[in-house]
């Protein structure tokens, strides 16, 4: 029990937090971009699985890690294209299309894995961890926090990049306008559909990369259904973060921390809490958090609503 209160325990928790948050950061930041343009994609879970599988299959076949991530991002974008075609061009209900994408993602990756990649034995070589100069020398915290692989570090860039894109470029300005006042954008002579396509494609390729993190930068194997609900968590993160990419980064970390703490507390024999209670913690916390956020103003005005030209 005592070592729970030590700096070492804290540092371990923080390191695990960041690693467990990484796939959620990718997916939720992507979803922020998509939802800012007014498109709600609940198919993140399926998209992440597609990314995880494609990345794994590519690296298994070629041994080339960067190519694996590239393929995962492209596969995510392809899933996004399918989603966008139905949700934006055909103007079908976005929740329905998202549900279909989840089914397709789970079905396709499991089917192809069983048909082509059953015996993958050793798995693939994953992205190696690297020390951040100086920072990794900090006592206690250095090793757990600053000895991660480059994908984990890149989450900072992803969040900052999305922030820059959304709030510091004219593309981002228009993209947000598409989510709030599509009619104005349309009248101004720009294509609402085009911006929404772009937002969905960016969002889904990030989700694909988040999936690829699972197979190429954390575990080294593909397991059917291995996203284990992370895509749904990312959806909750977006709401909790009030559609801000920087917010999504920190809220994802909070979730990562709950995951990490859950695993750590279970390993403490002196704590007699049923493990199911610990596992339910992150989900309970989300609900409580939603009550605390309690806002309606930040929601993109046309979220989930297809745009029809006048």
């Amino acid at each position: 029990m005592d070592h729970i209160l030590t700096l070492g325990f804290l540092a371990t928790t923080l390191g695990a937090t960041w690693r467990l948050a990484t796939p959620i950061i990718f997916a939720s930041v992507g979803e922020v971009i998509s939802e800012r343009a007014g498109v709600l994609n609940i198919g993140l879970e399926g998209t992440m699985l597609i990314g995880a599988f494609t990345g794994f299959a590519t690296v298994y076949a070629t041994g080339n890690l960067p190519l694996g991530f590239l393929a995962a991002g492209a596969a995510g974008a392809l899933a996004g294209l399918l989603f966008a075609f139905f949700a934006i061009t055909i103007k079908a209900n976005q929740i329905i299309v998202g549900a279909a994408l989840n089914l397709l993602g789970l079905g396709l990756t499991s089917f192809l894995f069983r048909t082509y990649l059953v015996q993958t034995g050793q798995g693939v070589q994953i992205v190696p961890a690297m020390d951040v100069p100086l920072l990794s020398q900090i006592p206690y915290f250095g090793t757990p926090l600053f000895r991660q692989n480059v994908v984990v570090y890149s989450t900072i860039l992803v969040a900052l990049g999305a922030y820059f894109l959304l709030f510091r470029t004219s593309f981002g300005l228009t993209l947000r306008a598409v989510g709030e006042h599509p009619k104005a954008v349309d009248v101004g002579g720009r294509s609402v559909a085009l911006y929404r396509y772009a937002a969905v494609l960016i969002g889904c390729s990030l989700a694909g990369l988040g999936g690829a993190y699972l197979t190429l930068a954390h575990a080294n194997q593909f397991v059917e259904g291995m996203t284990s609900g992370r895509g749904f968590i990312a959806l909750a993160v977006v709401v909790f973060a009030r559609w801000s990419p920087i917010g999504a980064f920190f809220v994802s970390l909070l979730f990562g921390m709950f995951y990490a703490l859950q695993l750590q507390l279970q390993a403490e024999p002196s704590i007699h809490i049923p493990y199911q209670v610990l596992q339910a913690m992150p989900y309970l916390a989300t609900i409580v958090a939603l009550l605390l956020v309690r806002n309606r103003t930040d929601t993109p005005a046309t979220l989930g609503v297809p745009y029809r030209k006048v």
Partner: peptide
């Protein structure tokens, strides 16, 4: 593989919508 059913269900939804 029985998981084919997920793919068909997904396709059913997409073509219906």
């Amino acid at each position: 593989p029985q998981v084919l059913v997920f793919i068909i269900q997904g396709m059913v939804i997409l073509s219906v919508v």
